[in-house]
Each structure stands twice: as C-alpha cells, then as structure tokens.
Amino acid sequence: MSDVLDAYPQLLRGTWTTVQLTVYGAALALVPALVFGLAGTSRHTAVRALNRVYVEFFRGTATLVLMYWLFYALPLVGFRFTPVAAAVLSLGLNVGAYGAEVVRGAVNAVPRAQYEAAVALNFTPWQRMLRVTLPQAVALMLPPFGNLLIELMKGTALVSLITIGDLTFNAQRIRAATGETAATFLVILVVYFAIAQMLQLAVRYAERRVDRMLGRRPDRRAAAAASGAGAVKA
C-alpha cells in the first residue's frame, strides 16, 4: 500500500487530468445540450427534427466506439485529432445528447400558463424564453445535470484506453511498477468517489441557490418529471 501512496505525484497528475477532462467535457456538452434541447421545443417540425437526429444519433453511439473512431479511424481520411481533443469531443457530444433531452424536458415542464402570462405582457418570443421560461427551467435541469456530470466524470476513465495520462492510466503504470494491483485500484476508486461526492455537493449548492431565487423549496414532482425526461443514461 505504501508503495502506491509513494507514487502520489503520479496520482495527483492523473487526478488533475481527470478533473480537467471533466470540466472540458462538461463545457462542451453544455453547448449542444442547450442548442439542440431548445430546438426540441420549437414549434417548427424541421427544427424539432434537428433535435431528434442529434439526440438519437449521439445517444445511440457508445462513447468508447466514438472515441476510437475519432482517434483511430478518422486520421485515415485526413482528420487528425489529438488524443485529448478526441476524448473531450466524444464525451461532450455523447453527454450533450442526454443534456439536450434534459433541457427539452425542463423547458416543456415549465407551465404553459407562464408562457401565456409572458405573452399577455407583450414580451417578445426571445424575452419570453430568456426572462421567463429558461430561469424556471434551470431549476428543473439542475438535478439531472448533476447526474450527467457524474456520468461524464466516470466516462473520463475511458481516455486511458487512448493513451491519455488520466487517473486510470497512471494507475496502470503504478501497478506495473509496484505490482500492488489491489491497493492501486482501491486508491483510485476512492479518489473517483471523492471527486463524485464533491461534484454532488457543488450541484446541491447550485440547486439551493436556484430554489432560493425561485423562492421555493425544491418541487420534487416537477424535478422528477424533468429528470424522467432525460434520466441518466436513460
């Protein structure tokens, strides 16, 4: 065990890479989640179809297959990605598809009466979305987003398979160097668990702030409805 802990610089570097990949992946995922999620609430069939195509395709793709494809297959037709770019892209696009479903579900879960009140006050369509619907939808998005963030963090372990020095990759090297298989994997499992717990705390804090902004205790049922629409991995 002590051999493993002696390798702490390597563990720390790996942890830092894992955290960075999580942050980049989440930032990337947020873009398609919002764009395609809002497209899914459009009145126009063609725009909604965009949402369906994106969501069905990337939800249907296995992250690791996508990652291999970007990393091994695409360079052969002239698109070369760095390992990190391939990793972040595949994680972000995949989680973004689930995120889009969360956004769509949450926006649709905001009562229609709110939209009508916004029409009655003569807000423009853009203002209705930005000032009335989205702020209320965010409260419904946060809990499922929290779950997705943890799924994303877990997903970063896959990058070790395309030679990125994340926590799992470094663990393999420590294992090879020390022969301490059980201890190495136990230690990094605990590190992953700790990261997940911290992410959860951060999301809960955000949830509380949004609930305060909306002046209410979390509305369990509405939140469940939204998370049902885009449940983790669902």
Binding site: I150, K154, G155, T156, A157, L158, S160, L161, T168, A171, Q172, R175, T181, A182, F185, L186, I188, L189, Y192, F193, A196, Q197, Q200
Partner: peptide, 17 residues
C-alpha cells in the same frame, strides 16, 4: 460507491485483483 466510480476501473479490479 459503485455507482459513482468508473465501470472501467471496476472491471480492472475484478479481472486483476
């Protein structure tokens, strides 16, 4: 614990440990 740690590492654990 099982839910918030990566499947990949769990597979390594089961297979190697």
């Amino acid at each position: 614990f099982i839910r918030s740690t990566p499947l990949l590492v769990q597979l390594f654990f089961i297979f190697y440990v």
